[in-house]
């Protein structure tokens, strides 16, 4: 049995402290902030709960017993999910044409492809570029990097319309690749990775070169393992960005290309439909499906995400 052991002196000290009447200070600030934060969190997290329970409420309950939010009148049901995933309409709803357009499985996969594939590819390309900018000495290196960094001032809106036509000209406008490839030129992630690479001691790279390592070997044996935290954090943000993006997929694919839609575009469509046909339950179910991957990821890697966010603020 692992037991905490202390020295007798420490115990005597504790007794003495008690005798001096010095109690643990009750920190008013802590209590106030705890209460306030608790209340705040309850209020702020209630939408999640409403969404979750709302998605488990059947169509007829939504219409007839709208006040029974958390305990639906006729019990929990998965009919909203069935409607979305299987196209199965609940009884009594009548014919709703739009439901047949819902291809939530396809959209989900498209989103996964866009978010995961895009992130991985970007990490590879950006970290290679960051490596070149940090460890390989070539002409105009600093000038080139300065130009790239300076371009961060130009907002994405300036290039998006041009990009849209560019992608069309390249014949990618009917391809999922268009979700991924234009993002590869992103500056911010590369800049952050480079900043991290700069903190790797140059001696390490030089001594590896002396040992006969090639640049590729140094890249994946030394630099990538050392930078795995920053790459991981960058990957997480990349994934979330890709998953949550609405504007770019909307620009790429029109109303008819439903097979190419991402979950966000599809969800926007579902919400629009639900507002008119009282199918809010299905929208909520879609919201849950849409939220689930990011939420799971956040719960797993919450500390890393917060850490990454904080350090980006500290380094500025």
């Amino acid at each position: 049995m692992a037991r905490n052991k202390i020295t007798l002196e420490q115990y005597i000290g504790f007794r003495k402290k008690k005798e001096f009447g010095e109690k643990r200070k009750i920190n008013v600030g802590k209590i106030v902030s705890f209460t306030f934060l608790l209340l705040f969190c309850i209020v702020w997290l209630s939408p999640f709960i409403i969404m979750f329970f709302g998605s488990l409420r059947g169509y007829s309950d939504t219409m007839l017993y709208p006040k029974e939010l958390f305990y639906p009148h006729s019990g929990y049901t998965l009919e909203n999910y069935e409607m979305l995933l299987l196209g199965k309409l609940p009884e009594g709803i009548g014919q709703v044409n739009t439901v047949q357009d819902y291809k939530i499985g396809t959209w989900f996969m498209n989103s996964c492809f866009s978010a995961i594939g895009g992130t991985l590819l970007y990490l590879l390309v950006a970290s290679m570029a960051a490596y070149a900018f940090t460890f390989i000495d070539f002409k105009y290196r600093n000038v080139l990097f300065a130009i790239i960094v300076a371009s961060m001032v130009i907002p994405g809106a300036a290039t998006s319309v041009g990009n849209q036509s560019m992608v069309y000209s390249m014949g990618l406008n009917r391809s999922l690749l268009a979700l991924i490839i234009p993002g590869l030129g992103g500056v911010y992630g590369m800049y952050l990775i480079k900043t991290f690479f700069e903190s790797i001691p140059k001696d390490l790279i030089e001594s590896a070169k002396m040992d006969g390592y090639s640049n590729f070997k140094i890249f994946y044996k030394i630099v990538l393992p050392l930078g795995k935290t920053v790459l991981f954090v960058q990957g997480l943000f990349g994934f979330m960005g890709g998953w949550n993006d609405l504007i770019w997929p909307q620009m790429l694919y029109g109303a008819k290309d439903t097979d190419l839609w991402t979950l966000q575009v599809g969800m926007a469509y579902i919400i629009n439909n639900s507002k008119t046909s009282n199918l809010i339950g299905s929208a909520l179910a879609g919201g849950v499906i849409c939220l689930l991957p990011v939420l799971v990821m956040y719960i797993i890697a919450q500390d890393k995400i917060i850490e990454g966010m904080s350090s980006s603020g500290i380094k500025g």
Binding site: W44, M51, Q264
Partner: peptide
């Protein structure tokens, strides 16, 4: 946590 929620998912809640 609310900040990681996709716009559309949040949109469903606020629509409701």
């Amino acid at each position: 946590m609310p900040s990681i929620v996709p716009l559309t998912a949040a949109g469903t809640i606020f629509t409701l």
